[in-house]
Design a binder for these strands. Structure first.
Lengths: 200, 200
DNA sequence: TGCAAAGTTGCAGTGGGTGAAGATTCTCGA
DNA sequence: TCGAGAATCTTCACCCACTGCAACTTTGCA
């Protein structure tokens, strides 16, 4: 099924389109790249582009549709002895190690793009909303609460916010992402009532 | 300056466009309303529409550009004896009382719209990123930390996430927004380490 | 080999969004 | 009161994002 020539080509096309989009936008800027440019660079027609992506933005900073389920599984995989907050943190760190670290160059290019076009940063995180839904599920299951309860929703939202925060800081601070993410998520677990006075 | 006929008309035009956008989209659905429709309803040309709003979305769920500065002032206005986290919470509640409650009908119409088009909810919060910047500043000033430090950024991001969470729940749960917001923000202050077992 | 399914493409059309030139309306000082 | 000048609105022309449709090509499978 996933090994057929058809699926392989499909993956290649999608990858080529995404790579072309990131490369061109990184080089010229978002508005200076048309869909036709991207399609031409990838060697397909413009019409085909829309068979893979809903729009230009999605091709550049589109979310990984697998991220949500992966996160949910990671949270569920943590031992029950671990606090929920800790489990979420470990899951995020595992996600970083498994995804961000391997495709480093692509992530850095995307980072350059969203830094040059800050308005895209938000859109880049739009997809993370979908991932947060899975996170809510995992937390709800772990705590025995409903997905509509406050705690799972707030923890998922806050953890997502902290993670985005870490990614943003990663762009400027010269420190590894996993350290920054751990720091931000620890802050949530400790509670935000008492601000630490040490600059970091 | 702000009392001239010119400025008054400008305000009227902007208001008419926003109101027309919300009304029409609420009635027909987002994709069934064109910019020309909105402009016609407001009695101006389509081109003029773009002199006021960057796009259709912005006219419907556009952010209040004043919200950021207002929040910063509110945080700064809280007594120093209050914890930072508490000050942020109070500021948010004051913002709700001052803005959401007065223009109730407009907010409810917007709520109906984003409920019918969940994908717009995220975009509606795009503007809140700008407000978060001001929140970071207020927190940094209050704590004596730099705006680039982890604590202000994470607290602002987490508080914003908790608030968005409350707004989202407001759409479904039949409870007042200020109560939901207080509940979500309290959860941050208490720390997220120990999930409460009571369903709410 | 032959057929069905999936993927690709060109085409035509709608609508979002922008720049520019000219008409209209308001402001303000004389 | 009036006219210069500025702000705003309108019209027009244009580019590009995005979509539905009807071929056409490639792949999977019997």
């Amino acid at each position: 099924m996933t090994g057929g020539l058809r699926d392989r080509k499909k993956r290649q096309t999608r990858d080529a389109l995404a790579r072309a989009a990131v490369t061109l936008v990184d080089a010229r800027g978002f508005d200076q790249v048309t869909v036709d440019d991207i399609a031409a660079e990838a060697g397909v027609s413009a019409r085909t582009f829309f068979n893979y992506f809903a729009g230009k933005e999605e091709a550049v900073v589109g979310p990984d549709p697998e991220a949500g389920p992966r996160l949910r599984a990671l949270v569920a995989a943590q031992p029950a002895s671990m606090s929920t907050c800790e489990a979420v943190k470990v899951a995020f760190l595992a996600e970083i190690a498994g995804e961000v670290d391997v495709d480093r160059e692509l992530w850095l290019a995307r980072l350059r793009i969203v830094m040059a076009h800050p308005e895209m940063l938000v859109r880049a995180f739009v997809g993370s909303q979908a991932a947060e839904k899975f996170l809510v599920e995992a937390i709800a299951e772990r705590t025995g609460l409903a997905t509509t309860d406050t705690y799972p929703q707030v923890l998922a939202a806050a953890a997502g916010a902290a993670f985005r925060c870490a990614v943003t800081r990663w762009a400027t601070a010269n420190r590894p992402l996993d350290v920054l993410a751990a720091e931000a998520l620890d802050l949530l677990a400790v509670g935000l009532a008492d601000p630490p006075r040490t600059s970091t």
